[in-house]
């Protein structure tokens, strides 16, 4: 499903400030797999997720999703690929603070050809699924950390993408909320989604993932 071949990512490439984030990474993830990317901050986990989501391009190597090279897609098609294939939960959620919960969840649906009614119906469905519908018209800036995360999850899954990428999803959550999130991931996994969670949270140590991959100093080690 997801394949990285000899992927390197160097920020500020060719300048004195060049930073190697990933070096010669080879990785294969099967459809429906739940994979944990474990490693300390700055090890390259987030970069790995960004490369899979085509949010950035590798300096070297290729990223394939379902045998299609996504790392060389022009901007226009990279956006369509993200819309169709990827749900991304960011570490800081990356919600638009001044918009309401409903509006944030609607955001991925705006550029689609769906009607307003159908889009809203889908957004409500996603909010209900992640138990945030009672806050639909509340401005995101007024929500707690847990509520924000549920909005971020609802938004990432509103278009029902086959791949879910979560970057440090429990970093800003207390134990109870983190536990809820772990259960939710398990549930999505059972539904057949391919899930990659990048984390250095020890609460994931006992989490029942299909695979754990250790990322350290830009290199990938299979556990």
């Amino acid at each position: 499903m997801i394949e990285l071949q000899n992927v390197s990512k160097i920020y500020n490439y060719g300048t004195p400030k060049a930073v190697v984030a990933l070096e010669d990474v080879n990785l294969q993830i099967e459809k429906g797999e739940l994979v944990l990317l474990m490693g300390p901050s700055g090890s390259g986990k987030s970069t790995l997720l960004s490369l899979i989501a085509a949010l950035t391009r590798p300096t070297k190597g290729v990223v394939k999703v379902k045998n299609r090279i996504v790392s060389k897609l022009p901007d226009h098609f990279a956006a369509l690929y993200r819309r169709e294939w990827i749900g991304f939960i960011f570490q800081r959620f990356n919600l638009i603070e001044e918009l309401s919960v409903l509006e944030n969840v609607l955001l991925p649906l705006v550029p689609t050809s769906w009607s307003i009614a159908r889009s809203e119906e889908r957004a409500w469905e996603a909010m209900r699924r992640f138990a945030i519908e009672h806050k639909a018209h509340t401005q995101v800036s007024k929500l707690s950390g847990g509520e924000r995360q549920r909005v971020a999850i609802a938004r990432s899954l509103v278009l029902d993408p086959p791949i879910l990428l979560a970057d440090e999803p429990t970093a800003n959550l207390d134990s109870a909320l983190a536990e809820q999130f772990l259960q939710l991931v398990q549930k999505l996994h059972k539904q057949g989604k391919t899930i990659l969670v990048a984390t250095h949270d020890p609460r994931f140590e006992s989490f029942g993932a299909d695979r754990r991959i250790k990322v350290e100093a830009g290199h990938v080690f299979y556990a």
Binding site: R82, P108, V110, P111
Partner: peptide
Amino acid sequence: RREIAILKALGWRIGD
């Protein structure tokens, strides 16, 4: 700039 990046991450094209 951050907002534009969020929109793009959510599948918005430059044209959108």
